[in-house]
Simulated assay, not measured.
Amino acid sequence: MQIISISNLPIHQIQYLTAAAGGVGAIARSLPILLAEVDYLPNNLEAIIVTSDLQGVDPKNQQLLSYLAIEELEKLAEIGKIPSLKNTGMILAGDLYAEVNRRGGVVGDVREIWLAFNRRFRWVAGVAGNHDSLGNTPLQVQSFQQHRNIYYLDGEIKSNGELSLAGISGIIGKKGKPFRRPEKEFLKIIRLLLKQSPDILILHEGPNDPQGNLVGQESIRRELEKINLTNDLLVICGHSYWKVPMIVLENGIQVIKVDGRAIVIQAKK
C-alpha cells in the first residue's frame, strides 16, 4: 500500500480551542482534513482516516475535539465528500486528551473516545500517546483491548483481514511516567515488528527529517532506514507538528505526520 498523492488544500477545517503556550488562556485553531490517494486498499475498504494529537475542545460545548471530529466526519460522509464511515478504517496515533487551560503534564482516559470512533467506523486501530490513559490497571487495559474491531497496539502486530498493523505506544523517555520507554527498548521493538513485514507501522513519536528541518527522533529515523523493504511500508506518527504531511525516507519508507491534521486515504480510481 503506497501513497500516491496528498492534497495541499483541505476539504474542510474543524475549528477548536486549545491551551495557549505557557498555559495562560486558550487560542483558536483549526484541524484541516486532507485527501490522499493510495494505490490499493485491502478488505474492500473505501477509505482509511488517520489522525492524532486532537488536543483541544469544541468552542460551543467544551467537549473534547475528538468527539467534534467524529461529528464533522459524519457530516462530510453524509454529503458525499468522504466515503461512508461504516466502510472506513480509523487510525489514531495518540494524544486524544486535552485540557483547554493547561498544557504539559496532562493525562486523561481516552477509552470512551476510542469506543465512540468504533461505533461509527468499521474498525479503529492505533496507539496511545504520552497524554493518554487506557485504564488504571493492566486488567482494565486488557478488557479494553477485547472490544470487537478495536486494535490497540503497544509493541504488537495484529492482522485485520489482508491488512497487517503494527504499533508502539508512547515516546522515548525514562521509565516512571506513562508510556515512556528507554531508547534502546523502543528501537528494539521497532526491529522486531518490522521483521514481520507489517503494511502499516503506527507510532506516536516518529522520526525526524534534518533536510526538511522537521522535528522528531533521529534514532527512530536511523532505525527505519536500516530496513531492507520486502513490501511497501507506511509509517503513521504524531506527537510533533510538521509543515508537510508526508516525507519519504532514503529506503523508500513513507512517513505520514498527522499531528494536528486528519487525512482521508482512498484508493486511486
Rank of each mutant, 00 (worst) to 15 (best):
L9T: 15
D58F: 11
G25F: 01
V255G: 10
I172C: 12
F144R: 08
V106I: 15
T137R: 05
I14A: 08
R102H: 09
I3V: 14
I157S: 12
N149G: 07
H12E: 10
Q217N: 15
Q15N: 12
S164D: 10
I14N: 02
G135F: 05
S143V: 14
N118A: 11
K188H: 10
M246N: 03
T230W: 01
N43Y: 02
H131D: 13
D232R: 01
P207A: 10
I202H: 03
R103D: 01
T88F: 09
H239G: 04
T18Q: 09
R222N: 15
Q266H: 10
V255E: 04
L233M: 05
V24R: 08
Y152F: 13
M1S: 11
T230V: 08
A28D: 05
K226V: 07
Q217L: 05
G206Y: 06
M246L: 15
T137K: 04
V235Q: 02
I49P: 00
L85V: 02
L41W: 04
L194R: 00
L45I: 06
L224T: 08
L41M: 08
N43K: 10
R191I: 13
Q142Y: 01
Y16F: 15
Y151F: 15
G206E: 12
A125H: 02
S5T: 12
M90S: 03
N251D: 03
V50D: 04
A28L: 08
A47K: 05
K75R: 08
I172H: 13
R191Y: 06
R261M: 14
A128W: 00
